[in-house]
């Protein structure tokens, strides 16, 4: 019953393995790319990412899905960062696709160049992806990214957001959440951790460019992630995918908790899963089993100082809960509807 030609099977959301990577009980087409034996493993064994690296996982998820969506006609450009360093130290590379690393802040521009070359060469089928961490995307690469968006270059830019500069040893980036400890926002003094700043929501900034597609995704929601990559690759022009990828080292979470932490970010409302086309939100993923933000925070040592009690900490936790609540309100995340994850 599981062969390619079997009729589409209605997935019931309460059966065995509804949310699993694969499921031998449903049609092959309904399983994730990651479930297939012939997935491209764009990022293969032997890379030097830390144990339980969310970025390594997210990159394979996204690129394998893009490979499937483009019939393996894919070129990837990589910003400097963990992903680049742990995959391509001479003399070994873990990539199995055409891939290039140029600089920290120019991945979007380099990819725009690749896309231009493909256009001029008439190789329409060859698609271009740029990828980087939150630092390379939201900070140093922001100018190039915005330019690529505004020109509507035919590039899917994927940001693997692990919320700090991990490659250099966990320094604060504009994606670092409030109160989080990093090496440059130490958990010391009267206001430990990152300041309660106003933050920078890159998916919303991307939407403000009115580009064809913007989405957020998580390593804890594989089917959703793959659907978004597939949708992105079905469109042309500038597209942006922001993937939440926990970093056990930088967040002080257990390597085996990487997916659980990402899942709690979704369930708490701190990381909303949304989709937008041409600047308009087209879909959001409702939260299944909502949890308070403390469930998410307590698995991570970077927030340990917040959970030591006291009035001030209670006020800060309430402020973080408000961030989550506002996300939930803004995107209507708690509603009666079976989620697609």
């Amino acid at each position: 019953m599981s062969d390619e030609n079997a009729p589409e099977q209605k997935v019931k959301f309460y059966q065995k393995g509804t949310y699993t990577v694969g499921n031998r009980l449903v049609n092959v087409r309904q399983r994730s790319v990651q479930a297939s034996m012939d997935r491209s493993n764009s990022l293969t064994c032997g890379h030097r990412a830390c144990q339980g690296c969310g970025e390594a996982l997210g990159a394979r998820y996204a690129i394998d899905a893009a490979m499937r969506a483009t019939n393996n006609q894919l070129i990837a450009i990589n910003a400097t960062g963990c992903l680049e360093v742990f995959t391509t130290p001479y003399p070994e590379t873990s990539w199995q696709i055409p891939w290039m690393h140029s600089l920290f802040g120019n991945a979007a521009a380099v990819a725009a160049g690749v896309a231009a070359a493909m256009r001029v060469k008439g190789l329409k089928q060859v698609r271009t992806i740029a990828q980087g961490g939150d630092g390379g995307t939201m900070d140093i690469g922001f100018g190039c990214l915005s330019g690529m968006f505004e020109r509507n270059d035919d590039v899917l830019y994927i940001c693997y957001d692990n919320e700090a500069y991990m490659n250099t040893g966990v320094q604060r980036s504009s994606a670092t959440p409030v109160a989080a400890r990093t090496a440059t926002t130490p958990a010391m003094g009267a206001n430990p951790g990152n300041s309660f700043n106003s933050g920078k929501n890159l998916p919303l900034i991307a939407m403000a460019h009115n580009i064809p597609y913007v989405a957020t995704a998580s390593v804890a929601a594989l089917h959703d992630l793959e659907a978004k990559v597939t949708r992105a690759m079905s469109l042309h022009g500038a597209r942006y995918l922001h993937i939440h990828v926990p970093c056990p080292l930088g967040w002080g979470s257990a390597p085996h908790d990487t997916i659980q932490v990402a899942r709690l970010a979704i369930k708490s409302g701190l990381f909303p899963l949304i989709e937008a086309e041409h600047g308009m939100v087209t879909a959001t993923v409702p939260i299944r089993q909502p949890v308070p933000v403390t469930d998410y925070l307590k698995l991570q040592k970077r927030f340990a100082h917040l959970l030591r009690g006291g009035e001030e900490n209670a006020r800060k936790l309430a402020a973080i809960q408000t961030i989550a609540d506002n996300n939930i309100k803004r995107f209507n995340l708690v509603r009666k509807e079976a989620p697609r994850v």
Binding site: T20, V21, A35, M37, T44, H47, G54, L57
Partner: peptide, 19 residues
């Protein structure tokens, strides 16, 4: 029950699916 979760969740691609 062959849900492929291990195969999918390994960041190191260190699980082989045998069919």
């Amino acid at each position: 029950f062959e849900c492929d979760n291990c195969y999918g969740a390994c960041p190191d691609n260190a699980i082989a699916k045998l069919g």
